[in-house]
Design a binder for these strands. Structure first.
Length: 725
DNA sequence: GAGCACTGC
């Protein structure tokens, strides 16, 4: 019996090995390893299906092991080259932009490596809320944000001898930030080695040097950057003209079709294309994937297609796919379509990278996407429909050729295709940098303007972020991180939110603030368009808090049902719960937090009756929120509202003077849009609000809004509102 | 009366 099992395992291993050897990358293994050995940094351009993600980490690890053995026999060979040490530099880290990828690749590699161990032994992973690794782990997969966090605690990332950054072409904020950090680490580790070599040369060391010799610095850091797009020159330039290695992929050919004339109504064009594909290819099996920009148009095209596709052959089986959808409904795209039907998936760019849908042979590409950008000058975010980049067009096309030859219908002309930007603008260039700057400061990078970014963010953006951090009280007059700033950097939240936590200690409402911030970091709490839970009179923050409190009271088994009956996303609540736990843990790590808490308790003794205390709770909570979000304050515009009943009230931000509306998703939306004034509706003598974010879609909208008192602004935002009233 | 691409710590 045992013998039989062993044979089974052996056969399994052999199958896997055969599969590995068939991968395109296997042919160039030796060349690859040689390149990695000879260079500190190597860029690998691997097309889809090359096997780079699963194989290269193993190649690197195997080479590290053989070098270790060689070193035992011959002490000189690897010392200068690729030196695994007992503690430092013995691990391989691999980063991915997404959690699912990190976990699934780790699983695959753990199987392939055939050490007989389970995931978490030799091969492990580390993502937020979930670390699966042990003392034995030598190859560890991360989300790139996770490895960045690790760099906060271990500034040289000294456990790792090699780091592989995968999907670098996506140029996410975290990947770009990580690449800059790794470049800086490489330099430092190189210098350490030199110092150590100096030690060896001069035998007349002083004590300090001897001490250092006892604890050897980490070896130089090998860096392997893996990208899928052809343009890797910017990476190579950034890493001192390091070599680029091309690896062929293995995908099926995809035939591409363009429109002859531009067509403005792309929904109609998509509708026609799908009907046409279904008609022309009626004898060929294969599903259709349509790329659209958002939920609304996906739903409306879904209705049209379902109607029109009833009487066709094959019948159309229309499936919608966007991130805000409940998880169970998302799973429908993975179900096999019934015989005699063709699956039509209408998706946002979630299907571009995050999800791979089996069975797709036809892609319809509108050539558009929604993109978020940030204007440093006004502090306003925009969410706009824009043309995709050529790299995205290629990526979308490729989705038709994963399993068999496919076809791609581009709903734009060939001329348009060539007018597209080659690459997506890196996220770092179109986002609020305050969080990045806070993290840089916490890493000890004082001069953030000279930090090595592949693409330098605008000086204005960096300066604005420094200003914001200063107004939050995180920086001293010299621009250096102070105690508050250091505490703020411990939280996985944007700086304004971090500041709320710090102030919550003074306001004695840390639990509540942490719950609110956890809810704010969760997208799509409400499933439907109408909010079915009790609203709080002061606005969204207290509503979210009450919702969280209600949810917490429900028994573990009943939570899902409770969410469904309250129009609330279970996935979101579950995530909020985890984030809250994580934030509370981070507070626990702040050394002198408890001390101050005790002082507060002393003060509490002097406090008045408990009843009044309870009434004040909402005030204290909103004060703590104001301490973080005072830059996001707005005042109701006094309009002579004789005729304007029913129209949404307008606000003006105190900083920047942006004229805005409350977003319709806000619980305060109805209050401000009715003829009542804020004062009457809310029962608070104030026309000031704070909000979580400002985003321009069709109008400029403030999302997650609460009513506050004007004087709190001067109290908590003294560095900006100090002199004025 | 009117609306929110996608990730990640």
């Amino acid at each position: 019996m045992v013998e039989e099992q062993k044979q089974k395992q052996q056969r399994f291993r052999e199958t896997i090995q055969r599969q590995r050897e068939k991968l395109p990358i296997y042919a160039s293994k030796d060349e690859l390893v040689a390149h990695i050995e000879q260079n500190e940094t190597v860029i690998i351009l691997g097309e889809t299906g090359s096997g780079k993600t699963t194989q290269i980490p193993q190649f690197v690890y195997e080479r590290m092991m053989t070098m270790k053995k060689e070193n035992k026999n011959n002490n000189t060979e690897f010392e200068s080259n690729f030196p695994p040490r007992k503690e430092k530099g013995t691990m391989v880290a691999v980063t991915q932009p997404r959690r699912v990828a990190a976990v699934s690749v780790a699983k695959r590699v753990s199987q392939e490596i055939g050490d007989g161990g389970k995931l978490g032994d030799l091969v492990g992973y580390g993502i937020r809320f979930d670390d699966c690794s042990s003392e034995q782990t030598r190859i560890k997969f991360f989300t790139d944000g996770m490895l960045l966090r690790e760099a906060l605690n271990d500034p040289l990332l000294s456990r790792y001898g090699a780091i592989l950054v995968d999907e670098a072409h996506e140029r996410t904020l975290q990947t770009d930030f990580l690449l800059g950090t790794l470049k800086a680490i490489q330099e430092k580790r190189r210098m350490n080695i030199l110092e150590k070599d100096d030690d060896n040369d001069n035998n007349n060391n002083n004590n300090k040097r001897k001490k250092r010799k006892k604890r050897p610095p980490p070896p130089p850091l090998k860096l392997i950057i893996m990208s899928a797009t052809l343009d890797a020159s910017s990476f190579s330039d950034f890493f001192d003209a390091c070599p680029i290695i091309y690896i062929k992929g293995r995908t099926f050919p995809v035939e591409t079709y363009y429109l002859k004339e531009p067509e403005e109504d792309y929904i109609d064009a998509a509708l026609c294309s799908v009907m046409q594909i279904n008609e022309d290819e009626k004898d060929i099996k294969g599903d259709v994937l349509v790329f659209l920009t958002g939920q609304e148009e996906i739903e409306s095209l879904g209705k049209l297609l379902t109607q029109r596709g009833k009487d066709t052959y094959p019948q159309l089986n229309v499936v919608l796919l966007f991130a805000a959808m409940p998880a169970e409904e998302q799973m429908k795209v993975f179900e096999e379509t019934p015989k005699g039907t063709r699956k039509i998936v209408l998706a946002t760019n979630i299907a571009e990278t995050s999800l791979t849908i089996p069975g797709i042979r036809y892609v319809v590409d509108t050539g558009l996407t929604k993109m978020r950008t940030f204007k440093a000058k006004s502090g306003v975010e925009e969410l706009k429909v824009v043309p995709i980049a050529r790299s995205q067009a290629t990526q979308r096309c490729g989705r038709a050729g994963r399993e068999a030859p496919g076809k791609c219908y581009r709903l734009y002309t060939e001329d348009t295709m060539f007018s597209l930007a080659e690459q997506v603008v890196p996220e770092l260039l179109r986002t609020n940098l305050a969080g990045v700057v806070l993290m840089l400061k916490a890493m000890g990078v004082n001069d953030v303007l000279t930090f090595p970014f592949i693409d330098k963010p605008s000086t204005e953006g960096l300066l604005r972020s420094l200003e914001l951090l200063y107004s939050l009280g995180a920086l001293d007059d010299k621009g250096e991180l102070n105690k508050i700033g250091r505490q703020m950097s411990k939280f996985p939240l944007e700086p304004m939110a971090c500041k709320c936590i710090i102030e919550s200690r003074n306001q004695k409402c840390t639990e509540e603030i942490v719950a609110i911030l956890a809810m704010l970091s969760t997208e799509n709490v409400f499933v439907g368009r109408t909010i079915q839970v009790a609203k709080h009179k002061t606005g969204d923050h207290m509503t979210l808090l009450n919702l969280y409190a209600d949810y917490s009271k429900v028994s573990r088994n009943g939570k899902k049902k409770w969410c469904n009956s309250h129009g609330v996303s279970f996935r979101a609540m579950n995530k909020a719960e985890k984030i809250k736990e994580q934030l509370s843990r981070s507070i626990g790590h702040i050394e002198d937090w408890d001390e101050d808490e005790e002082k507060d308790e002393e003060r509490e003794g002097e406090e008045k009756e408990e009843k009044q205390e309870k009434e004040n709770k909402s005030v204290r909570i909103r004060k703590a929120l104001t301490a973080g979000f005072f830059m996001n304050a707005a005042k109701k515009e006094s309009i002579s509202d004789g005729s304007g009943g029913g129209s949404n009230s307008m606000f003006v931000t105190l900083i920047g003077g942006n004229r805005l509306f409350v977003h319709p998703s806000s619980t305060t939306f109805h209050k401000f849009s009715s003829r009542e004034t804020a004062k009457e509706a809310v029962g608070i003598s104030s026309s000031y609000i704070i909000f979580n974010e400002l985003i321009r879609t069709n109008k400029l909208y403030a999302r997650d809004v609460s009513v506050i008192e004007g004087e709190w602004l001067t109290e908590f935002g003294s560095r900006v509102f100090g002199t004025q009233r």
